[in-house]
């Protein structure tokens, strides 16, 4: 499995991360080594083995449909970098047409 610039770029975009040119080389190298390391699993025959999806036997844990456990709006907004008291605010991102 060869890690190239296009793969790094695609993964960075999916992960919402950005790397400068120097970091790109390092992450490419790190990913190459990490993927090579986990490729070890190919040596193990897992044909017909059901993948393990849940750690507990309880699949659906239901409770009574009561309103509880919520936090207030004030609490929810308390840690936000920016809010107007009702909503979270994100920076203005509407691109100007050139």
């Amino acid at each position: 499995m060869e890690v190239n610039d296009a793969l790094v770029q695609n993964l960075a975009n999916l992960a919402r991360l950005q790397f400068n040119d120097q970091e790109k080389e390092i992450i490419k190298n790190d990913l190459q080594r990490m993927i090579q390391f986990v490729d070890k699993l190919n040596e193990l025959n897992t044909e017909g083995v059901e993948p393990l999806l849940h750690m507990t036997d309880a699949i659906n844990v239901l409770r009574e449909d009561e309103v509880k456990g919520s936090i207030s709006r004030e609490e929810a907004l308390k840690n936000a970098p920016d809010s107007d008291g009702t909503f979270f605010k994100v920076p203005k991102v509407i691109k100007k047409q050139d």
């Binding site: 695609n10 993964l11 999916l14 992960a15 991360l17 992450i27 790190d30 990490m34």
Partner: peptide
């Protein structure tokens, strides 16, 4: 970052 990138890879 390194682990997020590997995790994104194995799920992609």
């Amino acid at each position: 970052k390194r682990r997020i990138m590997l995790g994104t890879f194995v799920l992609s």
